[in-house]
Design a protein around this nucleic acid. Sequence first.
DNA 1: TCTAGTATGTACCTTTTGGTAAGTACCAGA
DNA 2: TCTGGTACTTACCAAAAGGTACATACTAGA
Lengths: 121, 121
Amino acid sequence: MATPDFVCGLDAALAVIGGKWKPLILFHLSHEARRYGDLRRAIGNVSDKMLIQQLKELEADGIVDRLDFKEIPPKVEYSLTAFGQTLAGALKPLCAWGMEHLIEVEKLVSRRGASKVAKVA
Amino acid sequence: MATPDFVCGLDAALAVIGGKWKPLILFHLSHEARRYGDLRRAIGNVSDKMLIQQLKELEADGIVDRLDFKEIPPKVEYSLTAFGQTLAGALKPLCAWGMEHLIEVEKLVSRRGASKVAKVA
DNA sequence: TCTAGTATGTACCTTTTGGTAAGTACCAGA
DNA sequence: TCTGGTACTTACCAAAAGGTACATACTAGA
């Protein structure tokens, strides 16, 4: 549907940061502006396609700024917009929660993975 | 992978509340315990399969409590665990952000939808 | 000249996710 | 007896998300 009916704002927020790499991007950009390749190395195991795609979406959503230096070889810097900063701020408590309960959550997730493996085997 | 490498806690949190209906469930249960059918009507357009599935996952993750009254006809109540409450608390700022920027986000999302429709047509 | 690095695009495929429709066991009320 | 409501399950299917591999245009350095 093109008319989203967000019930609790949470939906709205997740509509923006939903996507495997977006939280990471937000996280890494919240500290400072970064060049594309720099960002990719920081995140680690992202494919170019994914990173570019998510960056484009975040850019379209007004979360990140893309600064093209028009140089050869290409140089592009990504940073958070003011809007993106507010989002990053709202994300902090959740991030803190995740850090606080990291071990529990890791256990939970790996248990899920285990049961999935067991099903396959 | 069964060994998740959460970089920023955000990942961890999203691993738990990722899923189309989980935020809504958290939201509705954060106020009070609810019977299954009650919850389903509150959320609106969920299918039984989805709601049950997500509830099971949240239960397995120790986020919600399932209280089976062992009655016929069946009566089951769902509520947040203490752990779930902490998560709901951490979620509040994000929820507030979503509410605050609801109009912008709705515009963004419907724009995405529009371009998608345009592509199809 | 050949390789590597810059940022990005694109075609193709797999996995995951979400959704529909049906069925289960049981009881109450019309 | 037939319908509807309780909570839940299952089989099957469609759509979306994610991933791999390759291509681009250009330059610097070996």
